[in-house]
């Protein structure tokens, strides 16, 4: 298939035998990046004020680990409640009954508009505004009644504040996902006699997931970091737990590094999980599942060329892309 062709000069040419091109500016750029990275590493290793021994000492401290557990718990609870709430609000925003649309838009407007820190403090102080929380007939007799002071602990204030805030953001993400689904899909589902709920749950929502997952991953990470806000209402999250320690020992920087290490660790895990979920919901969209070639070697970066695969069983770096070469005409 790849028969050599002749140029006017009579030379036999086959681009498969081409040498990589040398690109001098990439060498310059690469050198600058290497120097900066080296300096950062030297700073991190040699600066004694970072006190890495203290970091190591407190990394697995029970107080820190329980703070980490609370941070993860709040993130998951906030995300689950926020996602369910967001899906309902998104469906409501697309309702054909105008009052439902208005109330859902109002919800998003309010809870996306107020900073989460303000919301947390507000919910924590709810008892001042509403001393008793009552379930009963509107303007009629009451059935159950609780003191707001008993009901609103730092934990419930944190869960309410984070979930409502998250719900507003998730509803916008879910709404964009729903709008991204071809209207023909809804027509087809209705045409087959699916109910509105079946159409939404079986046809629209699974397909919108492909669009919903990536921003939801970012949202998950934002919420994980956002939980650090609850330390202001004395909720024992990761940040609060290291604060408790450094208020006692005055080792502020190393203990903040302990928190940084854990935040980065969990965020990395979440990112990896997100990639897996993206692949799952992307099924049915790629005609043939091909893995992207890894082009990360230093040589590739400098020359901009994907190394040629070695003939048989070679450890060629760019194989995924190369294998199709012979199939094309």
């Amino acid at each position: 298939m790849t028969t050599p062709s002749s140029t006017s000069a009579g030379l036999t040419v086959d681009v498969a035998n081409a040498r990589p091109r040398f690109r001098p500016w990439r060498v310059v750029g690469g050198t600058i990046i290497a120097i900066i990275l080296l300096q950062v590493v030297v700073f991190l290793v040699t600066n004694e004020r970072l006190e890495w021994d203290v970091v190591a000492q407190y990394l697995f401290d029970p107080t820190v680990l329980s703070g980490l557990a609370m941070t993860i718990f709040l993130t998951i609870v906030g995300m689950v409640i926020g996602s369910v709430l967001g899906t309902v609000i998104a469906a409501g925003q697309l309702s054909d009954f105008a009052p439902v649309r208005w109330i859902c838009q109002l919800y998003v407007g309010i809870f996306r508009g107020i900073p989460p820190l303000v919301q947390l403090i507000f919910w924590f102080n709810l008892a001042y505004l509403v001393p008793r929380i009552t379930i009963g007939v509107p303007f009629g007799p009451e059935l159950y009644s609780w003191s707001a002071n008993d009901l609103i602990s730092p934990l419930t204030a944190a869960i309410i504040g984070l979930s409502l805030h998250e719900g507003a953001y998730m509803s916008e993400i879910v709404r964009s996902g729903i709008l991204a689904v071809d209207p023909g899909q809804r027509d087809a589902a209705k045409a087959m006699g699916f109910s509105g709920r079946q159409t939404f749950m079986r046809v629209v929502l699974p397909q919108s997931m492909r669009v919903i997952i990536p921003p939801t991953g970012s949202q998950f990470i934002a919420l994980l970091k956002g939980t650090s806000l609850v330390s202001v209402i004395a909720m024992g999250d990761l940040l609060h737990s290291v604060q408790v320690i450094y208020n006692r020992t005055y080792q502020v920087v190393p203990l903040l590094l302990v928190a940084v290490v854990w935040y980065l660790f969990v965020v990395t895990l979440l990112t990896m999980g997100q990639r897996r979920i993206e692949r799952y919901f992307g099924r049915g969209y790629d005609r043939a599942a091909t893995t992207a070639p890894r082009t990360g070697s230093i040589r590739t970066m400098l020359t901009g060329a994907v190394p040629l695969p070695e003939p048989a069983g070679g450890r060629g770096v760019g194989r995924g892309r190369r294998t199709t070469k012979g199939d094309r005409r």
């Binding site: 023909g184 087809a188 589902a189």
Partner: peptide, 10 residues
């Protein structure tokens, strides 16, 4: 339908 409208996730 003109555009088939099969469900791509199934």
């Amino acid at each position: 339908f003109q555009q088939f409208n099969l469900f791509p996730h199934w």
